[in-house]
Design a protein around this nucleic acid. Structure first.
Lengths: 146, 146
DNA sequence: CTACTTGTCAATATGATTATTACAAGTTTG
DNA sequence: CAAACTTGTAATAATCATATTGACAAGTAG
């Protein structure tokens, strides 16, 4: 099981918009070339980032732009935007038909739910602690040292 | 994206072994009935728990038994045993073909890896903090109050 | 108008997860 | 030993999520 690559793709996209955005139009075709991901997927990810208020895009004119400063975008915002984990279902997939006639079967969900939520929250809190400005700053530093 | 239900199934199994183990043989058929999960899946999960030194099973005689006390088994041990997350790949699936000729493409992995590992570690640390004895104690308490 | 780009649909592959059938091999009971 | 039961495991199929691809309507800019 792995969290969809749309997440790392989205971070890659946002980094490109900041790194290249001033010199050129950052189109879905360009992003497809940089990420190695199909342009339709790129457009879908951009649409999700746009719905989340993270980027602006427009038909025709082309080129994605940041809708807010990088330091106001965390990995968690990106994670939410691309729907890595379904809000209803949660991170852990429960076996769906525990037997209600078994004392354990009818209570296991109740007993585990809070704890699994805490595990998911621990992961999400860590995502909240990283802002895109850190990611991009590191990227620019590495590029300048190459 | 969700973590395989083999994880919650395994916790369910271990709870059943402790709750019912003294009164009866806890066979894969019985566990299949309690969990609503196919008996072959149950046997596969039991095989993984056995490989991890968490339970004992034997051909023929039937009935799974705990190989160590519940308070020495954490959710993390179970998570490792049933291989929720591939050790090589990690929790996050990276897009696989970033363009090495793009400055961002050839560095994005390097920049993100540490941070994604930290996120995964935060989740796994939370799993380590919960022992099966807590889960089973809660279950028994709820059953006794029904 | 023309060239380009985004938004989106539909069809297809690909891969992971779970279910199911089948049977060899080990254990227990009589 | 024979019968009944159980685990271990392989192979196949069904289901679902993920990612790719081609197509085209609609918006924008020169």
């Amino acid at each position: 099981m792995q969290i969809t690559s749309k997440f790392t793709t989205a971070v890659h996209i946002l980094t490109c918009i900041d790194v290249f955005g001033e010199q050129m139009r950052v189109t879905s075709e360009f992003l497809s070339g940089s990420t190695g991901v199909n342009a339709v997927i790129i457009r879908n990810v951009l649409a999700q980032l746009r719905s989340a208020g993270i980027v602006n895009t427009r038909q025709g004119s082309g080129g994605a732009h940041l809708a807010k400063p990088l330091n106001e975008i965390t990995l968690y915002d990106v994670y939410l935007a691309v729907e890595c984990v379904d809000n209803d279902e949660g991170l852990f997939h429960f076996h769906e038909n525990p037997n209600a006639r078994c004392p354990v079967g009818r209570n296991i969900h109740k007993v585990m739910d809070n704890r699994l939520s805490a595990v998911q929250a621990a992961m999400e809190n860590e995502l909240k602690s990283v802002s895109l400005s850190e990611i991009v700053a590191d990227t620019k530093r590495i590029i300048s040292e190459e």
